[in-house]
Write a protein that binds this DNA or RNA. Structure first.
Lengths: 233, 233
DNA sequence: GCCATTCCTGTGAGACATCTGAGACTCGTG
DNA sequence: CACGAGTCTCAGATGTCTCACAGGAATGGC
């Protein structure tokens, strides 16, 4: 899970957010810098090049758009993943998906941020040409079109089901603890009952295991794991 | 979505406009230069050749038409896409758009500008021979004549309906978020209720799905997607 | 074999996104 | 100036998704 996948800059005035993202993204193999103000971000971004910038639109000093503009004005364009409040007035959110940019609303799930980052990098760095398609056994997922097939048969998933399955499929054979799954798939401020996870595992199994063997295995006392049935060393 | 499709020059005195267009067009695979004045534009255009020039008619120094003339006077003719305010001067432009030129009124939708650029290049560079016709399932659209057929049956669409359907058909199977659709299909200064999109999806469905299966699928919590019903790998 | 723990799974309520019909508004036209 | 077409707003209806809860089943330790 290591190996440098690129240099990212995370900009947010809440240290909780920058820390959370920096930790998760470093674990994903990125090299991460952070900034707490727009002024800082511009300074840092001018000092060294970044593959992508994660940028809160509501910064204390300079507006996020302005930051993006100032950074983009030097040298060539850096793609941006904007962070925005969910209740952001419509006019604020306009224009954010232009030119390969994208946005996620706060509170987000780590899984979602990581997925968007990979999607943007996939589009803007065609050489890295990772397909948006992942496979496990006879299960196939296209992360762009959000289509899922088991043995060629199309399967409809809800948003949460999709995010959960994506996380499992991106970490095949790994035993993922309940904590890890909740932290990555659910929004970071989720304070509810951990039993939702059980429920969604159940939903997923009903949808993807009706016509085939078990793929999502319970590891009692720990969590879940994506495996093919004959578990051999 | 990448690969150099040609060199464009964007000329407008509002940096917001040049930035927006440059961002979107670079993402579309063009190589883009910008200029903020007529004088600048002429200088830049004489220094290197462009496939096409996007030119505001209302520039602070030199009139847009004059700029086009001065650029065209050297070497061979460069096609122009004029940008103009939605007022009386539109008529004036119409008369002057000869020989493959075209114009769009401000405020425009990105989708429209990109479509016009492709149309002009199609006409002026017959070698690039992209057809103006796109198909999806039994749905056919001619982007030049703005005709649409479902299973051979002609369908009348209003302008907004047409732009929306064109964007969907140009991104088949992709799940397009509401944000993406609003950013690309609606005019850049649209600050209204995001619910217009729902309404227009509804209009489109009523027109293109009465006599056939569902093509525009709702992806709840995300956006919409053009699909054929039997989803198979 | 018994118990405690963990996990499974059905039910249901509330929240929320989307659909849909009706109407207001703008603009060009007869 | 009335009219119609097109765009957009609004609000209620509808349906789906998410999550909480709770009893039942399975598992592992003793």
């Amino acid at each position: 899970m290591n190996g440098n996948k690129g240099r990212l800059l995370v900009v947010d005035d809440e240290p909780n957010i920058t820390d959370l993202l920096a930790m998760a993204l470093r674990y994903e193999g990125f090299e991460v810098s952070t900034a707490g103000t727009g002024r800082d971000a511009v300074r840092v971004a001018r000092a060294q090049p970044f593959e992508l910038i994660i940028l809160d639109v509501m910064l204390p000093d300079i507006d996020g758009f302005e930051v993006a503009k100032q950074i983009g004005s030097t040298g060539h364009r850096v793609p941006v993943l904007f962070l925005t409040a969910r209740d952001a007035t419509a006019d604020k959110v306009r224009g954010l998906t232009v030119g390969g940019d994208d946005y996620v609303t706060k509170p987000f799930s780590l899984e979602e941020v990581v997925a968007r980052i990979h999607a943007i990098l996939r589009r803007t760095q065609p050489d890295g040409g990772d397909s948006s398609r992942i496979e496990f056994a006879d299960l196939v997922m296209d992360m762009d079109t959000r289509e899922v097939w088991r043995d060629g048969q199309g399967i409809d998933l809800t948003d949460t089901e999709f995010r959960l399955l994506r996380y499992l499929m991106l970490n095949p054979r790994m035993v993922l603890t309940r904590g890890q799954i909740l932290d990555h798939v659910w929004e970071y401020d989720f304070g509810g009952d951990a039993n939702v996870l059980d429920t969604y595992i159940h939903y997923l199994r009903k949808k993807i295991e009706v016509s085939g063997s078990r793929l999502i295995h319970t590891v009692r006392g720990v969590g879940y794991s994506m495996r093919v049935p004959p578990e051999k060393a």
